[in-house]
Amino acid sequence: MNTLAIGLDRTAVELRMYSREKEAVFFSFLFPVLLLSLFSVIFSGQFADGDGTMTAGRYFLPGMIAAGVLLTSFQTMALSVATERDDGTLKRLRATPMPATSYFLGKVGLVAVSAILQLALLLVLAWALYDVPMPTEGRRWLLLAAVFGLGLVGGTVLGIAYSSLSTARSIGAVVIGPMLVLQFISGVYIGWDSVPGWLQQVAALFPLKWIAQGMRAVFYPDDMAALEMAGVWESDRVLLVLAAWAVGGLVLCVTTFRWYKRGTV
């Protein structure tokens, strides 16, 4: 069997494991969906007196999509790879003739399938229940695909690299804590324009802010760009920053990856 065929088989195995892990399904897959529903209901009053172009659902959708991208890629990878390293799954795989590439293809497949399903769920929910208008121009859908794709690639490789920082026992806290802070300061749970300027600067050092900004450019009316740091959407810069994160993450991932638990070789 070749690398790609084994990679596809690994994807099937990964999806099976993921779907059987209830905590993972809830906290990375359903969480953004649940929060979008909650926020759309809770904050609907605050958007009632506008002209109707901006609703709570439309306001929070880009942030939730962005958070979902990092939850399904970065968080899922960091947690699963750290666990697999410590419980010997990686060593076991290393003992077989399975190509290393196939293992990573399986991970990429898992992230791609779960993230696309999550995005579809978020869009259908926003459109059907919360009347969020879907983009009508092709360029907006293209931007969505580019930001989503680059965000996923970066999140996946960074998550795999990040898994080496900790052990299975503490990886949960090491991942979920910083992720939560990042979501608060990157315009996911709190509107980006409500985040203080200096915190926006901090958030700009990490990819989540850029994914959220790209998603706002997709779903917000164009006059909302005035609320951005630069006063415009900066779509090119968003893609450039995300591409840089993806490349840097890949280098980090390849140079730091370990198949064995620390102190066992």
């Binding site: 099976r16 419980d87 799954t89």
Partner: peptide, 23 residues
């Protein structure tokens, strides 16, 4: 291997099938 662990979420048939494909 001496240590045994992981694979908790799969069944023996699933992991055996998948592993056999690498050979």
């Amino acid at each position: 291997l001496q240590s045994t662990g992981g694979l908790d979420l799969l069944t023996p048939r699933e992991i055996l099938r998948s592993t056999s494909r690498a050979y």
